[in-house]
Nucleic acid binder design. Structure first.
Lengths: 330, 330
DNA sequence: TTGAAAGCGCTAACAG
DNA sequence: CTGTTAGCGCTTTCAA
C-alpha cells in the first residue's frame, strides 16, 4: 500500500477501501479512483494475519468424481461466492490418515470453518474434537459422526432405505440383497436399519448373508458380487446403498445374463443424471446433493458471521426422493 | 510463536521447524518435541505475507458437476497434495463476468499460480494478460485460449472428432449431425473442423444446417434437437461434442421413438463411467481427464519451483480414446 | 475526518 | 550453530 502515499495515510486508505463510515465521501472517491488506476488489490494474507480470519472455508470430502459430492461442492460454492468466501478443497480418498493430516493443518488458522464428510475408515473422533476445541467451527454433511456435537446436514437415510426396500417387497421381491461399502459409516448403518426394519415389518426374515459389504477393490468386489448373485437361493431384489455399486450390479448382471428387472429388481442410492438412460433405467433414491451443500455452507457462514462461532448440535434433514424407473417392476 | 521462548529465539524455532541445515539435530529434536506437545502449527498467512507466496493454486473451471472437470480436479489435487500445495476452487458457471472477477482477485497474490479452463463466453483476453503481466503464472487446460502464450494441456480434439466422424461414415452414415454449445471455444472449433474434414475426405458435402449450436437452455435445446431429428431428410448419425448433449439426444430419441443405432447412430465426447450401461451403450470419445489435470498441475507446480516462473508457450496433448459401443453399429 | 504507531506471526539477512 | 533486527502489508487503537 505504497504508491497512494501521494496524498493520504495508509490507515485512511485502508478505511476508505473498506468503505468505512469514518471517511468522507470525497476521499473515498479519490481513493477509489487511484485504486482503479493503479489496479490495486489489497493483499489478503496481510489482512488475514491482522484480522485473524481468512474468509476461507475448507471442504473435506472423500472423492469429487462422484455425482453426489460434485453437486454438493456446487451448492457450497454457490453460497461461498455469494458471501465472499473462498473454498479450499481437500480429497481424502477414503484415507483416515489423510483426513487427520488435513484437519491438523486446519489448526493453523488456514480456514475460518470446515465442512466435512468423513472417510469410510473414520472411527476415531479426536482429530475433529481437537480442531473444534481450538475454535474452528466445523459442520458435517452427509457422512456425519453422531458423537460430535455440531450441526449435521443429512438426508433421511433410514426412511429412504425403508421406502426402497418396501418398494421392492411390494413389487414381489422375496430375497433382497443389501449392498454397501462400510458398516462403520453412520449413514450406512441407518440405511441398513431401514432395510432390516422394512423386511421385518413385512414379515421377511433378515438374512445376514444377504447383507454384503464390499471392500472397494473393484476386482474382488466384482467377483464377490457375482458369486452372491449365482448362489441359490437366487436373490430377486437388490438395494445398493452406493451409486458405484449399482454400476457393479449392472455389470455383473450383464455378465451373468441375469435380466433386470425380470430376474432381479434393482434400486440404488444415486445422483447420476444419466440414471434414466441406463439399460434398464435405474430406479433411484436420489439425494438432494446441491441443497445439502448449500445448507451446510449457509449454516457455517452464518455461524462465522457471529461473535461466538456457535454451531447448534442439530440435524438438518433434507429428504431424498425415490424415482421409480424400469429396474424395478413387479 | 510464543510459548517456545522458554529456551530459544523465534528465528531458531522457525528454522528448526522447517528443518534448516543450519540447526543442530539436538535442538531440532527439542523443538519438535515441544511442537508436538503444544500442538503448534505455524500460521500460514504470516508465512505467506513474509515469503510472498502462498503454496496455493487457484483452479477456475466452468462446472464441477461434469465428469470431465471432476476427474480433472482429482488429477490436480493429487499432485497438489503430493507437492504440498493447497487448492482453491472457483466455478464460473460459464459466466465471463465471474471469470473476470475471479482473476482480478488473483492479482492480490492469493494464489501462486492458476489453472484455467475458460467459459464458453470468453472472447476477450485482457483479464488473463493482466494477471500474467503481474507475474502470476497461469496454465490452461482443456478449454484454452490460443492467443495467449503459456502452457496448454489439451487432448487431440481435431483428430478425435475426425476419427469419430470417420467411424460413423464407415458404419454407413450419410447425414451426420454435429452438436455443440459454442462456436467460440477453440476446442469446439477444432472438433468441428475434424468433423468437416472427415466428411470432405470421404466425399460428403458439409451441410451447414447439420451443424447445430445449442444455447444450454434445456427446454429450448430439447425442442430444437427434436425439430432437427424429425425434419427430413432424416439424419442417420450424430456426433455430440459435449457429454450433456448425448443425454439430450437419448432423451429426444426415446421421445420420438427413434431407434439408436437402428435409425441413427450416436457418438459423443464423454467421460461418463456409466456410458457402457446406457441404453444402448454409448460409443464415446473419452478424454484423459485425470491425466490432463495431473499434467496441468505438474507443469504449474514445476514452474512455481523455479526462480523465474516460466511457462513455455507450448501445447501438451494427451490423446483421447474412442470406445466403440452399441450406439454405433452398421 | 484523518493520521501515527503498534503489531498480527513469521522469515531473511546478517551478526555473533 | 544460534540470535538480533527489521520488516512483509494490512488493520486497529487512540490521538489530533
Amino acid at each position: 500500500m505504497l504508491a497512494k502515499e501521494l496524498q493520504l495515510s495508509v490507515a485512511t486508505i485502508s478505511k476508505a477501501i473498506r468503505d468505512s463510515h469514518e471517511i468522507s465521501d470525497k476521499t473515498k472517491l479519490r481513493v477509489n479512483a487511484l485504486v482503479e488506476k493503479l489496479n490495486y488489490v489489497p493483499n489478503p494474507y496481510a489482512s488475514s494475519l491482522r484480522r485473524r480470519n481468512s474468509k476461507t472455508i475448507g471442504v473435506v470430502i472423500p472423492e469429487v468424481t462422484d455425482s453426489f459430492f460434485a453437486q454438493a461442492i456446487n451448492g457450497i460454492e454457490s453460497v461461498a461466492q455469494e458471501k465472499g468466501y473462498h473454498v479450499l478443497i481437500y480429497l481424502t480418498h477414503e484415507s483416515f490418515e489423510k483426513e487427520k493430516m488435513i484437519l491438523k493443518d486446519f489448526e493453523s488458522g488456514r480456514v475460518d470453518g470446515v465442512l466435512l464428510s468423513v472417510t469410510r475408515e473414520t472411527t476415531q473422533i479426536s482429530h475433529i474434537e481437537e480442531l473444534m476445541r481450538m475454535g474452528v467451527p466445523l459442520a458435517f454433511f452427509d457422512r456425519v459422526l453422531e458423537e460430535i456435537e455440531t450441526t449435521k446436514i443429512i438426508t433421511n437415510d433410514y426412511e429412504s432405505a425403508y421406502l426402497a426396500t418396501k418398494h421392492l417387497i411390494k413389487k414381489g421381491c422375496k430375497k433382497i440383497l443389501f449392498l454397501s461399502f462400510s458398516n462403520i459409516l453412520c449413514i450406512s448403518s441407518k440405511r441398513l436399519s431401514g432395510y432390516k426394519n422394512a423386511l421385518l415389518d413385512h414379515g421377511i426374515k433378515v438374512n445376514d448373508s444377504d447383507i454384503i459389504t464390499f471392500s472397494n477393490e473393484s476386482k474382488t468386489d466384482y467377483l464377490l458380487l457375482k458369486k452372491k448373485l449365482k448362489s441359490p437361493p437366487r436373490a430377486d431384489g437388490i438395494l445398493a446403498s452406493v451409486e458405484k455399486l449399482a454400476i457393479t450390479v449392472y455389470q455383473a448382471c450383464a455378465d451373468l445374463r441375469i435380466n433386470i428387472p425380470g430376474d432381479v429388481q434393482v434400486i440404488s442410492f444415486s445422483n447420476l443424471d444419466s440414471a434414466s438412460f441406463l439399460n434398464p433405467p435405474l430406479t433411484t433414491i436420489s439425494q438432494p446433493a446441491f441443497e445439502i451443500g448449500k445448507a451446510a455452507a449457509a449454516v457455517l457462514v452464518k455461524a462465522l458471521g457471529r461473535k461466538k462461532f456457535e454451531l447448534q448440535n442439530e440435524e438438518i434433514t433434507i429428504p431424498s426422493a425415490m424415482v421409480v424407473r424400469k429396474s424395478t417392476r413387479g
